[in-house]
Design a protein around this nucleic acid. Structure first.
Lengths: 191, 191
DNA sequence: CCCTGATGTTAGCGATCATTAACCGCGGAG
DNA sequence: CTCCGCGGTTAATGATCGCTAACATCAGGG
């Protein structure tokens, strides 16, 4: 099945890189490690990406875009039902975290290693995603001020993103239910 | 015994190392960086620690011990009031996370870089700490099975430990209150 | 049939890394 | 006084790093 090998290569490299970066950290993975993970030599990667940092940037950009787009879609679909919108945001994020643990891990650990041209864009996307959650939550908790809501959303992300590290305790399905219940309760906790 | 002066230096090195490891990751910090952070040259550190990995091991061991000991103390002090025991566990962990963000960060990111003799001990301490929480929580939620409780505790740690990354949104005091409310709600969420 | 672009390979370059070696000032005990 | 060990220095070593150079293979179109 060598049919469509060419264009898949880029995605294959990014996936392998995300797994390795998640497991050992950006600086803990060498170019040769990355090449070996896709069955080539190290320098072969320079035919697809200009450098190691570009790999990381591509991973983070794609993740940030997916999260932001998905969040926007869900929030807008339930624009008049914030309770349901929050539920959908939670489900979407949880599904992503359980499906792509490596991406979630890299996404919230390695931003500092992305060089400046791309870092700003990734930050913007991340901030937009957070604000999506904040604006939904603001309608459910009108008494809370925005800084508190932002901190609460960040804390909830910490809860949801912890899955990759604790992983094997539970099967994906009950884990999703557990995270949903905990995330909802945490975000709606008055005090 | 020259205990005081020598051990000041040691503690100073460990603190600087924790800050750097938290900010840039274990592999992102060089021996020269570590030396510079305490006003000496890089190789001077070998007068106090056998190597870079030993620095990390010492940091993680101390943190794990502090958490485990503190958790045990609080849980046993309220052995007959699990509601209060959970409250105390939460407060203790939150205080630690807010007071020592670098230690918390290194503690849950860098275990894989600790070589084997010490890693096992650190893991044992960490597991003991988790079980402390689980056993308190089990009395508050008798219907839940242990794997679910363990996963819930890990998720709660993710929530509490996210502080260092979101940090500057809120002053420490309201942040502590927010985390307490969210952690309590998340852990007690029936479903 | 060759030319060319895409995608590999190995060799090598300069930088940086963790660690060791060799040396030194100094404070306090005998 | 002397000696010696503690805690520092600079220099050097071998490994590894990201990346570039130079070359190879091969498919397809003219």
């Amino acid at each position: 099945m060598a049919g469509r090998a060419g264009s898949d290569r880029r995605a294959e490299i990014l996936r392998a890189a995300a797994d390795l970066f998640a497991a050992r950290g950006f600086h803990g993975v060498s170019i040769d490690d990355l090449g070996r993970a896709v069955g080539t030599s190290g320098p072969a990667l320079y035919r697809h990406f200009p450098g190691k940092e570009a790999l990381l940037a591509a991973i983070l950009l794609e993740v940030s875009e997916r999260l932001a787009a998905d969040g926007k879609e869900r929030a807008e679909a339930w624009i008049d039902d914030p309770r349901r919108a929050l539920e959908e945001l939670l489900r979407g994020h949880i599904r992503f975290a359980l499906t792509e643990p490596a991406l979630i891990t890299v996404h919230d650990r390695e931003l500092d290693n992305v060089p400046e041209p791309h870092r700003r864009r990734i930050r913007r996307l991340q901030r937009g995603y957070v604000e999506q959650w904040v604006s939904v939550l603001a309608r459910l908790r009108p008494e809370a001020d925005p800084p508190t809501l932002r901190a609460a959303v960040h804390a909830a992300f910490g809860l949801l993103n912890s899955t990759p590290h604790s992983a094997q305790e539970l099967a994906p399905d009950p884990m999703a239910e557990l995270l949903l219940a905990m995330g909802r309760a945490a975000l709606l906790a008055g005090d």
